[in-house]
């Protein structure tokens, strides 16, 4: 893998990034590029640090080593005000939705507009209804977050993430908890947002099928390393056992299903200790 020269047109570039949680090394010197106007997917087993990577890109976590550059700015060297200005141009869909629980759906989607613009309430109404229509939940505008299903909450969160028309959206598991119909509709929405508004999208997902359908470029991460990357077509063709296992969902292969642990039989037989 050649990481030395960033492609000219990358909006986000991650360089030699290392990050640890306590003793556990989550990333070990990884480099990735996210091209402008494209959909780039990050795939990998649960617990490899995909969410962590998005938080590093958004400047919520600080890397041990290496750098993250977004639109020419080194995220972790920015001053607070500059970082906030950058974030206004980034939408992020949290894995949990992260809706504000003391407001209804309408106010949640209106929240970034009210915080960052001086638009009139009637303008805000138009925009909010447009965004809600896009995710198919215009009829749910009066519901409170606790009255939504997990899948609905995530779609509302998506409407909120696109409220300010950002230059880039980070999606953390947008498809989880969606039925096949809304999954298809969401994939279509992400694709069309990307194409019509010229957004850059970074998608973290396990849903191989939907992701391959819309992504332009794919990184596969496992155990702190990038185990494969390439265009969607190349990934489909790839002979790499890591990628093949991930695409086909086989339990046996180089990608471990288990969190690192000592030998299973030894563990069962070593009675006496509690853990």
């Amino acid at each position: 893998m050649d990481n030395s020269a960033p492609p000219l047109n990358s909006l986000v570039s991650v360089r030699h990034l290392s990050f640890s949680r306590g003793d556990k090394k989550i990333f070990d010197d990884i480099s990735l590029d996210f091209e402008r106007g494209k959909i780039t997917a990050i795939m990998g087993p649960s617990g490899t640090g995909k969410t962590t990577l998005l938080k590093l890109i958004g400047g919520q976590l600080h890397p041990g080593q290496g750098s993250v550059t977004v639109d020419g700015q080194n995220v972790h060297l920015l001053r607070r005000a500059e970082l906030y200005n950058l974030r206004k141009r980034i939408g992020m869909l949290f894995q949990s939705g992260a809706l504000l629980t003391d407001m209804n759906v309408y106010d949640n989607v209106a929240f970034p507009l009210r915080e960052h613009t001086h638009l009139s309430e009637s303008m805000i109404r138009t925009l909010v209804l447009m965004k809600l229509q896009a995710v198919g939940l215009r009829g749910a505008r009066k519901l409170m977050p606790n009255e939504l299903s997990g899948g609905m909450a995530r779609r509302i969160a998506l409407a909120r993430a696109i409220a300010l028309d950002p230059m880039m959206i980070l999606y953390d598991e947008p498809f989880t908890g969606q039925d096949p119909i809304s999954m298809g509709a969401l994939a279509h929405l992400i694709k069309s947002l990307n194409n019509t508004l010229g957004l850059t999208s970074i998608i973290v997902s396990h849903d191989v099928h939907e992701t391959l359908l819309i992504a332009d470029y794919i990184y596969v991460i496992s155990e702190g390393k990038i185990v494969g990357h390439g265009t969607t077509a190349a990934i489909r063709q790839s002979a790499s056992p890591w990628i093949q296992q991930f695409m086909t969902g086989a339990a046996d292969g180089p990608v471990p299903f288990h969190y690192p642990a000592k030998d299973y039989i030894d563990d069962l037989l070593s009675s006496g200790k509690r853990y």
């Binding site: 938080k55 919520q60 206004k88 980034i90 949990s96 809706l99 970034p112 909120r160």
Partner: peptide, 17 residues
């Protein structure tokens, strides 16, 4: 609870302090 449900971090990502 706002912290536990990521509402505070969500706000930070929306550039709201």
């Amino acid at each position: 609870l706002m912290k536990a449900t990521e509402q505070l971090s969500g706000m930070e990502m929306m550039a709201v302090d």
